[in-house]
Amino acid sequence: MGKYVVKRILSMIPLLFVISVVIFMFIHLIPGDPARQIAGADATIGEVQAIREELGLTKPLVTQYVEWVGGFLTGDMGVSYTNNTTVIELLTPRLPITIYLTICSITWSALLGIIIGVVAAINRGKALDLIGMVIAIAGISLPNFWLGLQLMQIFSVNMGIFPTGGVETWQGYILPSLAMGAGIMSILARVTRSSMIENLGKDYIRTSRAKGLPESKVIMRHAFKNSSIDVITVTALQIGALIAGSVVVETVFSIPGMGRLLVDSIGYRDYEVVQALILFFSLEYMVINLLADVLYGVINPRVRYE
């Protein structure tokens, strides 16, 4: 498996290269001029031109690309046009915040989602199933910014338990994680339930029951273990979707994270920040999918890595 992991990591390199070209072209070709955004509305044309030259935007695109990639490889991710800081300085405080938020959201939502899914599958057609699926549908249907504002109203304004925003204390992470994870919890509940129902109908389950295994073992050792492959796949994909969710939740809860930075940077056409962020998100996505693939093997020894 070690060999497989190394191979997978090496295959990321050409992929990242392709992504770098795509983001570079994408951000440079959409309309909008960073120099104008930096200079402000009442800037003179001379000022705008001077900024363009200062930022190297007058150079040919190929030169700009080569310079950017060259810098990146030597650890220089460039500078933010709007904030007068390096991209690294800009990302350093934000990265842990977004990662904590992602971990918190995924942890509670995966645990609860799986529990609801399993319970619902076992009690298929009964009241518990119905309750579980109502929760799941609610979680998936409520827009997370709306949910965020409601949570804030209840827990911050009315009850005064949690802060309305910011992440100076650990309490600050709770409401945003709840708002962010609700959708994932619902999706996982539904996936777990349908996968469990499918597996519970299989012949080996009947066999296990026939040979007198206690029901808890039938469910956990056999049915759930087989369903967990689906659950892992969906969870890995959902972590990618969390990036989109973080944009909204970080805005509602005034959290200075990566999602909000991305949106602001696109607005200002802050090219180097956008490029670095999208590269980072792509890398994150690849790593999580690699982890998922490795987990398949751990859970199901029949999965072989070639």
Binding site: L149, M152, Q153, T164, S254, P256
Partner: peptide, 11 residues
């Protein structure tokens, strides 16, 4: 303090 969402500012 930067609070982009109006509902959050009022909260």
């Amino acid at each position: 303090r930067q609070v982009p969402e109006a509902g959050s500012r009022i909260a």
